[in-house]
Amino acid sequence: MKKILISAVTALLLFSCQNDQSESTDSEATAVSTRRACASQQVLDDQLRADPTLAIRMNEIEAFTNKSILTNRLVNGKIEIPVVVNVLYRTAAQNISDAQIQSQIDVLNKDFNALNSDYNSVPALFSGVKANVGITFVLDQIIRKSTTKTSWGTNDAMKKVAQGGLAPTSPATKLNLWACAIGGGILGYAQFPGGAAATDGVVIDSKYFGLSGAANAPFNLGRTGTHEVGHWMNLRHIWGDANCGSDLVSDTPTHNEENYGVPAYPHYSTCTGTPVEMTMNYMDYVDDNAMYMFSQGQKNRMAAIFVTGGPRAAFGI
């Protein structure tokens, strides 16, 4: 297991630039993905270029998070998060049902409370660090809007009324989800803590929202939502978006890169020490049926954003 030292320099090293995501064609928007693609880090890079002060705010959040964990300021209080779901649809299939929306809430509640049926599949090697995060989600409101837009891309257009989208509802105290056609092979993306309130929340392609049916396999079990909400709660990809990078969590093994599909266990990293990778972690890129755990370190990192002084303290612990 790796140990990390969080500093402003370390945080800044995370923000490496990536290529911009262009808006997809109609055929790309309707195709079903076979490999997971999350645009959260790419969107963060774009936001950092547009707003240099964001890096300062995020460095402050990193320092606060590290201090909260080291000084045991975290408590086991109850966090219940109201969820607003914004549905933007052009086709009947994109206008997902209330039942499908509720299925995503149900998946979040299972995955964040260790109630998922595959939680006991965690290998013995990681059984000592697997975690019940203890955060619950309640569906607060569903807002629907018809659109002629084929795909929305990753520039937050779906969150802006002037661009045909729906603005977030009370983002300081409610988690906003957008269900829409993202395009470009992107399953979803989230805004990390510290970003602008006007764009805060999680975007999930409507094909992968909740229990979306066998036609959308292998991403039809709602784990795109779990992965992206993890980002919204300040978790990074488990490989740190760099070869043998850091996810800023001490009890996850160093991954050389993302994993896809359903990796055979044990899967060894090529990084120093060749540790067994935690491929079943929600913050990897594996298929929905191959991810089923958060670690205790990830739990502590998520909890830190909700304590007094944290970036999502309005939700409260």
Rank of each mutant, 00 (worst) to 15 (best):
M58E: 13
M58I: 10
M58N: 09
M58Y: 06
M58H: 09
M58D: 03
N59V: 15
N59K: 13
N59P: 10
N59E: 08
N59W: 10
E60C: 13
E60L: 03
E60P: 01
E60R: 03
I61H: 04
I61E: 02
I61S: 01
E62W: 08
E62G: 07
E62M: 09
E62I: 14
E62A: 11
A63L: 14
A63E: 10
A63M: 07
A63D: 10
A63N: 11
A63I: 11
A63R: 05
A63V: 14
F64S: 06
F64L: 06
F64G: 04
F64D: 00
F64Q: 05
T65W: 04
T65F: 02
T65C: 03
T65R: 00
N66P: 04
N66R: 15
N66W: 08
N66T: 13
K67V: 00
K67I: 00
K67A: 01
S68P: 01
S68R: 03
S68Q: 03
S68Y: 02
I69T: 03
I69S: 00
I69F: 02
I69R: 00
L70W: 00
L70Q: 00
T71L: 07
T71P: 01
T71H: 08
T71I: 11
T71C: 06
T71E: 14
N72C: 09
N72T: 10
N72G: 09
R73W: 12
R73Y: 10
R73E: 15
R73N: 15
R73P: 05
R73S: 10
L74K: 01
L74H: 04
L74E: 01
V75Q: 13
V75S: 15
V75E: 13
V75K: 12
N76D: 15
N76E: 15
N76R: 09
N76C: 07
N76G: 15
N76W: 10
G77W: 00
G77N: 12
G77Y: 02
G77P: 06
G77F: 06
G77K: 01
K78E: 14
K78C: 14
K78G: 14
K78T: 15
I79Q: 12
I79A: 12
I79T: 15
E80W: 11
E80Q: 10
E80Y: 12
I81E: 08
I81L: 03
I81H: 00
I81Y: 06
I81R: 01
I81G: 03
P82Y: 04
P82E: 09
P82N: 03
P82V: 11
P82C: 05
V83H: 07
V83M: 02
V83N: 05
V83W: 08
V84L: 08
V84Q: 11
V84P: 07
V84D: 12
V84T: 15
V85K: 05
V85S: 09
V85N: 09
V85H: 05
V85F: 05
N86C: 01
N86W: 09
N86Q: 06
V87L: 07
V87H: 12
V87P: 07
V87A: 10
V87D: 13
L88Q: 07
L88C: 09
L88R: 05
L88W: 06
L88A: 08
L88D: 04
Y89G: 14
Y89S: 14
Y89N: 11
Y89A: 09
